[in-house]
């Protein structure tokens, strides 16, 4: 891990906003007293007149963004994932999703790797909440390069969208060139394989790639899918993997209820696909304070556990 090039997806978000601000004069940014953490401060410094500090008042921020969108602005709204979804669910539901407002909610500090702040700040239900909303697109980029690309796509495609990244620095997986063809709703086959498929999203793509390497030494060939878009889900790709490999494991820094794992399970079940299947994620508990690495270990969300789960699943 240490030899890998690390970059924080939040910084990539800040950089993307600056680029987009130049290109789209109608792009505006709102934040709720967390601009230093979400990195919207980068945009605020460059375009102070298009940045709105809304104070610690997230519900108001979402509805305000919807109003801005109704007048042709492209609002990017940022705060921690826990405050960007759960706290403001009804505002998103009415003013953004139902109204098909062109609001882009970009949340940082998603998942348990928020770490020491504890379960109050570890958002593990945001994907489920956002996925349940009609009209909402749900995104979880896996590294800084992809984050930047996805932020551009969010600005350039119309409609309500939610994206979440983690807090921590993340190893770089992609070059810009790798992602030239990236499309919302189209998963990426990062590594091919024939025995088992990891369908991972966000922060779990990187450990899945590590798990693949370890499994390879044991003679197991794993495919790794980066499912950066959880909704609309790339159903075709899911079904293809179910056909071409013997088992599927989904991996997400999110509850096993309602997120990527659920979405994939729904597709498999409704298409009468018989396959070995396992959801990796938080097993319907609130986690706790600790370092990200300790938490990933305790709650079984690292490459080590992916390897173990893959071995067991293939034995079944």
């Amino acid at each position: 891990m240490s030899s890998k090039l690390m970059f924080n997806p939040r910084n990539a978000y800040g950089e993307a906003l600056i680029e987009l601000g130049e290109k789209h004069k109608n792009l505006v940014v709102l934040d709720a007293d967390l601009s230093k953490s979400t990195k919207t401060i980068m945009f605020a410094k460059k375009y102070p007149e298009r940045f709105f500090e809304m104070g610690i008042a997230e519900a108001n921020m979402i509805s305000t963004a919807a109003g801005l969108a109704s007048c042709g602005k492209i609002p990017f709204v940022s705060t921690f994932a826990v405050f960007a979804t759960g706290r403001v669910y009804d505002q998103i539901r009415m003013d953004v999703a139902y109204s098909r407002a062109n609001v882009k909610i970009f949340a940082t500090h998603g998942g348990i790797s928020v770490g020491e702040d504890g379960a109050s700040h570890q958002m593990i239900e945001d994907i489920a909440l956002m996925r349940a909303l009609p009209n909402m697109t749900v995104l979880a980029p896996s590294d800084a390069t992809q984050t930047k690309k996805i932020v551009h796509l969010m600005a350039e495609n119309i409609g309500p969208m939610y994206a979440r990244v983690g807090r921590a620095d993340a190893p770089i997986i992609y070059s810009e060139k790798d992602l030239e063809e990236l499309k919302i709703g189209k998963g990426i086959v990062v590594e091919d394989g024939k025995d088992i498929t990891f369908i991972a999203t966000g922060t779990m793509v990187e450990p899945a790639l590590e798990a693949k390497k370890i499994l390879k030494e044991q003679g197991i060939s794993a495919r790794v899918i980066d499912m950066h878009t959880v909704k609309p889900l790339d159903e075709k790709l899911v079904l293809k993997c179910a056909k071409e490999t013997k088992a599927i494991i989904t991996a997400e820094e999110h509850s096993i209820i309602g997120g990527l794992g659920s979405a994939v399970a729904e597709i498999l079940a409704e298409n009468n696909v018989q396959t070995r299947f396992l959801r990796m994620g938080i097993k319907d508990v609130f986690c706790e304070s600790g370092s990200p690495a300790e938490l990933w270990e305790k709650y079984e969300l690292n490459e080590k556990h992916m390897v173990k789960k893959a071995q067991n699943l293939l034995k079944k």
């Binding site: 706790e288 600790g290 300790e294 305790k298």
Partner: peptide, 13 residues
């Protein structure tokens, strides 16, 4: 405080 398996979570519980 804030360590894993602690009764003292980052925020009060």
């Amino acid at each position: 405080l804030r360590k894993i398996n602690s009764i003292l979570q980052g925020h009060p519980v």
